[in-house]
Each structure stands twice: as structure tokens, then as C-alpha cells.
Design a protein around this nucleic acid. Sequence first.
DNA 1: CAATAACGCTACGATGTGTAGCGATACTAA
DNA 2: TTAGTATCGCTACACATCGTAGCGTTATTG
Lengths: 165, 165
Amino acid sequence: MAATTDLVTAQGYAGTSIDEIARASGVAKTTIYRRWRSKGELAIDALTAAMGQAPTDQASAEDALGSAISWMTRRIRQQEVRGLLLGLVAEATEDAEIRSQLRSHLRAPFADRLTNEWGLSGREVDLAFDIVVGGLLHRFAMNGRVTKADSDAFTAVATSVLFGG
Amino acid sequence: MAATTDLVTAQGYAGTSIDEIARASGVAKTTIYRRWRSKGELAIDALTAAMGQAPTDQASAEDALGSAISWMTRRIRQQEVRGLLLGLVAEATEDAEIRSQLRSHLRAPFADRLTNEWGLSGREVDLAFDIVVGGLLHRFAMNGRVTKADSDAFTAVATSVLFGG
DNA sequence: CAATAACGCTACGATGTGTAGCGATACTAA
DNA sequence: TTAGTATCGCTACACATCGTAGCGTTATTG
């Protein structure tokens, strides 16, 4: 998984082959396929590790949303996370299995606590999520980079979706 | 180009090969490569044709933005456009050439008139663009579909970015 | 009707995913 | 210690894809 993250960070998702990952991690390709069913599922696990834990110590719904958004934008500005995520979102487009794993490993950690513990509307939390993640990834796809100003702009929009700006 | 659009609509971008496009259009694969340098550039042209013309008859900046956004969301809800776009955005991620063509064939028709003729802020028009396009494509990637309610939600957010909501 | 441009076709080279089969190595339990 | 089991590494493969080379054939054009 570390080799996966490193190579995808350096070469992009599509530009990284399982052969390379096997070589870099000192393991046979067949061994990788004994543990993961596909490149996508390996990337899901690598992404989950790279994301780490969502923040939990908040005093209000506003705090919880703000810190969830800021956590997500920081992660997306991280090249390791972004590289894996871009590849996985592209694959999710034509693979329902990856789609479902992305929902439970990426969206759930962001959204579940906000809706279950803080009572925020599921529809609006999803909207904030898609604005931040979709917006930043799309901006990267169009411009080849994502700046702090970019992530601040999407953060402001997503926040005002739930707490009128 | 028609064969490209049809096949991508039915099978997705990654799931459609140049061989299939050649067969479906009754043309040799080599002929396709004599006109387009890659699958991506063929898809750019097919996308441009499928998008059609951006609307132009407006009376105010608000009108112009509103109709540009609504034009874009309608196009993205169209399966032909969405299929091509999803594949191209994925490719743009690791291909600066596609990235640049996407800016001039997709973003420019949406944004140029808004900034040049109606004096809207480039930064904010880009933000509206990325919210609508990025948001809707990402929602499709996560859910496997995009509803009218989805596009209405992103439309509302993007509009309020420029004309305070 | 000759010269030129475009096409169709077969055959490649390079790369990728994912699998089969087999011998060697490490681990586990009595 | 030793027998049995799970895991591993390796080669080879099946299959698909992009994009190109070369060559003979058909259109087009002047």
C-alpha cells in the first residue's frame, strides 16, 4: 500500500501499473492479486490509509461541518490523496463496486457524523461534499493544480450551503 | 464522431475502443488515426458537436449567467455529453494537451462571454463553472446517476455564488 | 488520363490487467 | 524434530488496448 501511494503520487493512477507496484514493494504481482481483487480495491485501501481519521472534537454543528470540510480540502490538496482519488473517481464512473466502496470509505467518514450526531440534513451535507470534492478535483483536472485560494473558495461556498452566507 | 458518441453513450468512455468505433462507422482504424491524433482528441470533437452552441440572447448579467448555467446542467444531464465528458475529465488528469483542449472547448464557451461581455469576475465565473460541472460529474461518479433535483441544487448554489443568495 | 491524395487491410510493437500452475519457502502444531 | 499447511515467487499465459508501418487499391483532381 505504501508503494502504491508513492508511485501513484509520482506518476498518477493510470500511469502506475501493478507490475511496478510489485517491483517497488519487493513482492510478486501474483501476491498482490491474492490480497486484492483489482487495482481499484488496492487503491481504495491505500486511500483509506492516506486519509486518516476524520476529526471528531466539536462543540456545535457549525464546528463539525467546518472542520469536516477543512479536513477534506486539506486531504485533497495532498498529492498522495488526490492522485489516488482522481483515479478512483474515474473508475467509479464505470464500476459500481468501486462506486460503493468510495461511498463507504470516503463519503461516509465525512458525512455520517454530521447527519447522525449533529442532525444536519443529508441532502445538504451531500451537496457540501460534492461541491468540495467534485469542485476541487474538477479544478485540478482543468488547471493541473489546486491552490490554497482554490480550496478556500470551495470551502466558503460549501459552508454557506448549510449555514447561509 | 457520431459512432463515437453513440458507443460512448452506451458503453462508457473507457469501455469503448477505437476498433469498435471504426467498425461501427464503417471505416478502417488507420483512417481514424489519420484524422485524430488520439482517442481523446476524437472525443473532444464529438463532445463539442454534442454540446452545441451556448445561448446568447440575454438582457442582463443575471440572465446570461442563469442561462449559461442552465445550459451547462442540461447538457451534463444528457447521457451523450456526460459519457464523453467523464472520460475526458479523467484523461485531462494526466494529459496536459486534453486539459488545454477541454478549457478552450468546454470552459471557454461557458465563461468567455460572461466575463468579456457582461463583466462578471473571472474567478467567480470559474467557481460557478467548477461547482456545476465538477459537482454534477462527481455526484454521478458517486451515485451512478444524476437527477433533475441534483442539477437544480447545484444550479442554485452556483447562481448564488455570483448573485448572493 | 496521368498524378496525387486518401483509404482499407494486415501485421505489428508496446503495455496493461488479471489468471494458471508449479516448485520453493516459511509457519504451525504435535 | 517433523509432518502438514498456507503462503509466496516465478514464468508463462490469455486477452485487450492504443497507436504505427507498410503496401496495394480506390477516388479525386487537374
